[in-house]
């Protein structure tokens, strides 16, 4: 329920792990709505916005980024301990992000190729989502997240209700805005039927196939989509690339790309 004036405002913290900052910037991007949010929530720890940091524990923690170093694998437990509700935001935090492409190769080799002095680099072999390390209360998908989703989740928390975040396919958003399907009109490979909605069918509305930014939908039938694309003459290599994007390490997309790599 909405807090009365006498009650203290819930405290919010924003944490960063391996990521590009794009998702936490969506919070700042809520320009018009941010003042309203600040009326009901104390933004207690948000390095991108202010150096003034008040100590935990926090009512809500937004966690951006994946776990890629031994230090971060420790730090995420500290964050969890200080947080009543922990919400992961973005493809990095929920699926390992684009940096999880390393998971399909040997990360040590990359390190030795990229850095002059590899011995100073301490990195894990895999980039993993936060939920692999600690309990996560809610996952907000997207690369980047949709700022209205973020507001919706905060709003739902403040009002003690369920957030209206879809789990169905991008196709539903395509149809709700009457975009003719690019897979049907032009045989463009589109991940929409196996990808969770959230972007309001942005790519199909610009005549492109969906890249899978929001990760697998509920019950994603990736193998049926692949079989159909193969029958249309797409190569296995194309399928590997199709499923290996920002959510490459999400279970459904990972299994599907691996199935075509052999």
């Amino acid at each position: 329920m909405a807090k009365s004036k006498k009650q203290r405002k819930p405290k919010l913290a924003v944490w960063k792990f391996a990521s590009c900052d794009g998702c936490q910037l969506s919070l700042l991007d809520c320009e018009d709505e941010l003042l309203g949010v600040a009326k009901h929530i104390e933004i207690a720890n948000f390095a991108e916005a202010s150096r003034a940091i008040s100590k935990g524990p926090y009512d809500i923690s937004l966690v951006e980024g994946s776990i890629t170093t031994p230090h971060d694998a420790e730090r995420i437990h500290q964050v969890r301990r200080q947080s009543k509700i922990l919400i992961t935001i973005g493809a990095c935090a929920t699926a390992g992000g684009i940096q999880a492409l390393r998971n399909f190769k040997d990360a040590k080799q990359f390190v030795s190729m990229v850095y002059a002095n590899p011995k100073y680099i301490e990195t894990l072999n895999k980039s993993t989502p936060i939920a692999d390390h600690v309990f996560v209360d809610f996952e907000l998908r997207g690369c980047p997240i949709n700022k209205y989703h973020l507001l919706e989740v905060i709003n739902a928390y403040l009002n003690g209700r369920k957030p209206n975040i879809p789990t169905y396919a991008v196709c539903v958003e395509c149809k709700r805005r009457f975009v003719p399907c690019v897979a049907v009109t032009q045989a463009i490979p589109c991940l929409g039927p196996v990808t969770q909605a959230g972007c309001n069918a942005l790519c199909p509305s610009y005549n492109r196939g969906c890249f899978g930014c929001y990760g697998p939908k509920e019950t994603p039938n990736t193998s049926a989509l692949s079989s159909y694309l193969l029958a249309q003459g797409r190569s296995r290599e194309e399928l590997v690339h199709l499923f290996r994007n920002f959510n490459a390490y999400s279970e459904a997309f990972r299994k599907e790309s691996e199935a075509h790599e052999k």
Partner: peptide, 28 residues
């Protein structure tokens, strides 16, 4: 074979199903 993508029902001129979402103002 089905992707459960819902396209068939959404293009169907007779399908009539809907859901409702309640959206609060921040203050409630």
């Amino acid at each position: 074979r089905c992707l459960s993508c819902a396209n068939c029902t959404l293009v169907c001129p007779t399908c009539f199903c809907s859901t409702v979402e309640d959206v609060t103002e921040l203050s409630g």
